[in-house]
C-alpha cells in the first residue's frame, strides 16, 4: 500500500550526478525520449478533442438562433427541433444495448470460462471479426435482408403484443423499423463489449476463483462469487464504449429506415424516431448554410451528451473501486 512508501523512494531529491558511465547516460536519454513521446501523444489527443469541440462550437452556435422556418415544419426553436432527435438517439442506443449486453456477456463468459480452449479461440476470433465489417455493409444487410426476415416477427408483435407501447403498431409493411435498426446496432456493438468483458473475466485473480472452488462452488457460482464482482467495473467500461459507438452510429440507422424528428415509442411502425447522427447524414448534403449550422449544433448536442455519458460512467466505476478499497 502507498502508506508504506518511504521518503527515499519519492523522486523529489536532485538527480544523481551525471558522471555515470556512457551506457547509463544513454539509458536515461531513452527514458527521456519515451517520456516525451508519451506526453506528446497524450497532449495530441487533448488537442484533437479540443479542436473538434471548438469547430462544433463555432459552426454550431449560429444554428441555435436561425430563422424558425429553417428547422422545418412544426419546430419553432432549436431545442424543440433537437429534443426528439436526442430522444431517438438515446432510445435506439438503449434498445441496442438491451439486445447486445446479455448476449455479449454470455459469449464472453463462454469464451473465458466454459468453452474448451480449442473452441474458445475460434469463437473469440469470429466475434472480433464482426467488428471489422464496415457499417455500410451492416446498413445494407439490415435494410434489406434483416428487414425482410423480420417482417413476420413484426407482424406477430403488432397483432399479439400491441398492448405494449413498444409494439403498438400498425406494423410496418416493409420491415424497416426502429426494431430492425436496434438489432443491427446491437450486432455492431456486440464485439467491443464481448472483447472487453472477455479480457476482464480472464483476468480474475486465480486466488479468488480458488476461494470459491474450494468452498464447493459450481462453475456458475464461481462466476457469481469471484468473477463478476471483480469484473464489474471493466464490464461497465465495455458497455459504455459500446454505447458510445451506438450513439454515434450513422450508416446502420440511415440505411435501415428514413424518418423525421419525432417522439414515438413505437418500434415496429412505419415512422420511427430519428437519431442525431442519421439526421445529419440524411440532410447535410442538400442543406442551406443556415440548416448546416443547425445540423452542426445538433452534432454539438450529441458530443456533449456522449461526453456526459462517459463522464458519469467513469464516476460510477471510480465509486465502485473506492467502495472496494474502503
Amino acid at each position: 500500500m502507498s502508506l508504506t512508501a518511504s521518503p527515499e523512494q519519492t523522486p523529489t531529491g536532485p538527480p544523481e550526478s551525471d558522471s555515470g558511465s556512457p551506457a547509463r547516460r544513454s539509458a536515461r536519454l531513452g527514458d527521456r525520449i519515451f517520456a516525451g513521446a508519451a506526453l506528446g501523444a497524450g497532449l495530441l489527443i487533448m488537442v484533437v478533442l479540443a479542436g473538434v469541440f471548438i469547430f462544433l462550437l463555432i459552426q454550431g452556435v449560429p444554428g441555435l438562433s436561425v430563422d424558425p422556418s429553417t428547422y422545418g415544419q412544426g419546430f419553432d426553436n432549436f431545442w424543440s427541433y433537437v429534443a426528439p432527435l436526442l430522444f431517438g438517439t438515446i432510445f435506439i442506443s438503449i434498445l441496442a444495448l438491451i439486445v447486445a449486453v446479455p448476449f455479449a456477456l454470455a459469449v464472453a463468459l463462454f469464451i473465458s470460462h466454459y468453452a474448451p480452449r480449442r473452441l474458445a479461440t475460434p469463437v473469440a476470433y469470429v466475434i472480433d471479426l464482426l467488428a471489422a465489417v464496415p457499417s455500410v455493409v451492416y446498413g445494407l444487410w439490415g435494410g434489406r435482408a434483416l428487414a425482410q426476415a423480420l417482417k413476420p416477427v413484426i407482424n406477430w408483435l403488432g397483432d399479439y403484443l400491441n398492448w405494449i407501447p413498444l409494439f403498438k403498431g400498425p406494423a410496418s409493411p416493409n420491415g424497416q423499423t426502429a426494431l430492425t435498426a436496434a438489432l443491427v446496432l446491437g450486432v455492431m456493438i456486440l464485439p467491443i463489449i464481448t472483447a472487453i468483458s472477455r479480457e476482464v473475466f480472464a483476468q480474475t485473480p486465480r486466488l479468488n476463483e480458488e476461494a470459491a472452488i474450494g468452498l464447493g462452488a459450481t462453475r456458475w457460482e464461481v462466476i457469481r462469487l469471484a468473477v463478476l464482482p471483480y469484473a464489474k467495473s471493466g464490464v461497465i467500461a465495455g458497455i459504455m464504449l459500446g454505447l458510445g459507438r451506438a450513439l454515434g452510429e450513422t450508416m446502420a440507422v440511415t440505411m435501415v429506415y428514413s424518418s423525421s424528428p419525432k417522439f414515438t415509442l413505437n418500434i415496429i411502425g412505419d415512422t420511427s424516431p430519428q437519431t442525431i447522427a442519421a439526421n445529419i447524414a440524411n440532410n447535410y448534403s442538400e442543406a442551406t448554410p443556415d440548416k448546416q449550422h443547425v445540423l452542426i449544433a445538433a452534432g454539438l448536442v450529441l458530443f456533449a451528451f456522449t461526453f456526459a455519458v462517459n463522464f458519469i460512467a467513469r464516476w460510477a466505476i471510480g465509486r465502485g473501486e473506492r467502495n472496494l478499497a474502503r
Partner: peptide, 16 residues
Amino acid sequence: RRRIGMVFQRPNPFPT
C-alpha cells in the same frame, strides 16, 4: 469440496 474445506497459501477473502 463442500465436505472437505480448504485454506490457501495467501488469504483470499472475496474482495467485494
